[in-house]
Structures are given as C-alpha cells and as structure tokens.
Amino acid sequence: MLPVPDFLTIGHVSKDLRPDGTYTLGGTVTYAALTAQHLGLATGVITCADPNMCIELPSHLPGIALHIRPSSVTTTFINQYTEGVRIQYLCARADTFEARDVPEAWRNTPIVLLGPLAQELPTDFASLFPRRPDALIAASPQGWLRQWDADGRIWPTAWHDAPKVLSSLDVLILSYEDILSSNGNSREEADALFSEWSTMVPILVATEGRYGATLFHEGQTKQFPAYEAEEVDPTGAGDVFAAAFLIHLSKNGDPELAVEYANCVASFSVQQEGTKGIPSLSMINRAFRSQSRKE
C-alpha cells in the first residue's frame, strides 16, 4: 500500500519551452509539490506524461512520491511575458485524468490541491476526496478557465461548472489574471464574480502578482499587499502561493495569516527562473518574522 502523503497535488506537469528549444519543468503540480516539500511535508504528485518524462521526473522532483500515467505526449507550453502580461500557447496536451488514476489510499490525504492546466481534470474530480474536518480540499482552477484555438493560443473561457466544483471544495485559489481577460479587464466584474463564488466555497483567495492578494471569507473581503521583490520570472508564483497558503492554513487555521505567509513565500519564487526561486523553510521563517516585526 502506498503511504499517504501530507500534501497531494494533481494535474499535468508541463514543459515550458525556452526560445532555444530547451525547457523548464512547469505546471501547478511541480511548483506546489516542491513548495510543500521545502516546507517539510511528505508530498505526492499524480500526473500524466510521455514515457521519457516518466523516467526523468523523479530526478526533477527528488523525494516526492509520484504516481504517473504514461501518455503519448507531455503537456507543453510557450509562455511570453510583456509588462507582466502572459501570452501562452499550448503545443501539446497529455491525456485526461480518470478516477482510477488516484490511488485509494491517497484519497485520505490531509491537503489536496487540484491543479489543472488544460481541462485535464473532470469537474467531478474533487468529489473523489471525502470532506473531513481535518482535511483541506482545494483547487487552483486556471486549467478550467482556458480554451485554445487551432494555433494553440490560449484564451479565457467561462467556468460554467464552477458551482459543481466549488461545492466539493474547502478552498479556491486563483488569480485576477485568469478572470480579468474574460471580463473586459473590469476589476468590478471580477470582484463580483469572486464574491458570487465565495458564497459557494468556504474560502476564496484571488492573487494579483505584485499587488498582493484578496481574501474572500465569511462574507468579508480583505486585501493584503505583496512583499517587495525584484521580479525575474513570475511563472509558478501563484502555485507556490497556493501550496504555502494551504499548509499554513492547515497548521494554524487562520486564513488571514495564511495569506500573509503565502505572500512571503511567493515573493521569493519570482526572483529566479522556474523552480529555482522556491525558498527554503529557514529563508521563509526569517523573512516572515522580519515583516511581522515591522508591522
């Protein structure tokens, strides 16, 4: 029987292509799993990738328990940033997940983060995990908010199945970027949608890069500024934030402190390329204590 991890994340790993044809390993599961591991948790990943990636992935994610279904391809993206705005192309997509891809023992993991990239998780996937007082079932839904054209250009799409998914979650974590482009860049419309969704899920957090994050909880809305950071590569910062938020919330039960903590952790991740910026626990503790003293 597979040991039950402390933290489980599910979704496609991705190849994020560089201009020279090489790639960095990406995907919510990659950034979230490494963050959880750095924070001291036994971590598991369920993913789908091509045979070569199945062989290589343990070296990319050492010490993390992997449950991989082979696919003909690995999900592959090209990410282009202009003044912090990402233009993204989907070059290849791995297979869609099925319920049988989740080991029975892992359905009792204390912290679960669903991290779809390209509509690969069925909307009823969250219901595979029983709601319990000592568990957090969460999603970062960017992959449910995407569609793509014949050229692979990613475009926003409405999340029609949101009510069905949210009824199975404890926490939803997403970015304003995921919503603004599908709402005419209207902050008011995005906030209205978040407020609506927050009535369907106990905790909703909307991240906004260098501008911090907004917590929607128990009918109240509160904004939290980001930590100062010199941005080099923002890819994955939202996924790092999500993992840090869930772990701190699980340990302390205070969503406001969890947002502050996650902002701190995410601030490190943007300062280096790819996963290199994910900080150690000691780095986080020093920065978080220092910020707390300033306040």
Rank of each mutant, 00 (worst) to 15 (best):
M1Q: 14
L2M: 13
P3S: 10
T9M: 11
I10L: 13
G11S: 11
G11V: 08
H12K: 09
P19D: 10
Y23T: 06
L25S: 02
L25Y: 03
T28K: 02
A33C: 06
A33Q: 04
A36R: 01
H38E: 13
L39N: 00
L41W: 06
A42H: 14
A42S: 14
T43N: 06
V45G: 08
T47P: 12
D50R: 03
P51D: 10
N52A: 15
L57M: 11
P58H: 10
L61E: 08
P62S: 15
P62V: 10
P62L: 13
G63R: 13
L66F: 07
S71R: 02
T74F: 09
I78P: 02
Q80Y: 07
Y81F: 07
Y81T: 00
T82M: 05
T82H: 10
T82Q: 11
T82L: 09
E83V: 12
Q88Y: 01
C91L: 14
F97C: 04
E98C: 12
A99R: 12
R100I: 15
D101W: 08
V102Y: 05
V112Q: 03
L113V: 06
A118F: 06
D124P: 04
S127E: 09
F129V: 09
R131P: 07
R132W: 11
L136E: 01
I137D: 01
I137C: 07
W144F: 11
Q147N: 12
Q147F: 02
I154Y: 03
W155L: 13
P156V: 02
D161A: 14
A162I: 12
V165G: 04
S168C: 15
L174Q: 04
E177G: 00
L180F: 11
S181R: 11
S181T: 14
S182F: 06
N183A: 14
N185A: 12
S186C: 10
E189Y: 10
D191P: 06
F194Y: 09
W197V: 07
W197P: 03
L204W: 03
T207A: 00
T207S: 02
E208T: 02
G209S: 13
R210W: 01
R210V: 01
Y211H: 12
G212M: 04
T214I: 12
F216V: 12
G219L: 06
T221W: 01
Q223F: 09
F224S: 05
P225I: 07
A226G: 05
A226Q: 03
E230Y: 11
E231R: 03
D233F: 00
P234R: 04
T235E: 00
G236L: 05
A237D: 03
A237E: 03
A237N: 03
D239H: 06
F241T: 00
A242M: 10
A243Q: 08
A244H: 02
L246Q: 07
I247G: 00
K251G: 09
P255G: 09
L257S: 15
L257H: 15
V259W: 00
E260W: 08
A266C: 07
F268R: 01
Q272N: 05
E273M: 12
G277F: 01
I278R: 00
I278W: 02
P279A: 05
S280Y: 09
L281S: 14
S282K: 14
I284T: 09
I284P: 04
N285F: 07
N285S: 14
R286N: 13
A287D: 07
A287G: 08
Q291A: 12
K294G: 11
E295A: 15
